[in-house]
């Protein structure tokens, strides 16, 4: 678990995705091969905008309910992320911004996983 989580730090800690300079598409998580342009693709890493809006969401009711949302960032890229707010607060179209939060931990003696979630814009 440690190496797997470590490999994801760069794009989890901040919303770093890939951008294809050939077709202009964004991808998150980042890809190393453009699914549209295939071999002609020219991918570069890029830091995505801080804010976006909720395109759709679902409330996962497992122990404590939490929200998974499809978020369209201001560059048009779509990311799937946990939304940190009350299930009753979330609405399609609401403005959200990135927040650095805990994802979880590997038990009491394991590593703590951190990453980006989204929260409502005040």
């Amino acid at each position: 678990m440690v190496p797997r989580s470590w490999r994801k730090i760069r794009y989890r800690y901040d919303v770093r995705g890939s951008y294809c300079e050939n077709c202009g598409n964004y991808h998150y998580p980042p890809r190393n091969f453009c699914p549209t342009c295939r071999r002609k693709g020219k991918l570069v890493e890029t830091l995505f905008p801080e804010e976006g809006r909720v395109v759709s969401y679902t409330v996962v009711r497992e122990k404590e309910p939490y929200i998974i949302a499809l978020i369209e960032l201001d560059n048009g890229a779509r990311v799937l992320s946990q939304l940190s707010c009350e299930p009753g607060e979330v609405k399609i179209g609401m403005r959200v911004k990135k927040a650095f939060r805990r994802y979880g931990e590997d038990g009491e003696d394991g590593i703590i996983h951190y990453g980006t979630k989204f929260v409502p814009v005040d």
Binding site: S84, A99, F100, R101, R102, Y103, I112, Y114, K117
Partner: peptide
């Protein structure tokens, strides 16, 4: 703090 906040997350938000 929220359930998913701690000193590291508070530090990152203030520093950002």
């Amino acid at each position: 703090p929220d359930v998913d906040e701690d000193t590291a997350t508070i530090g990152v938000e203030a520093a950002r």
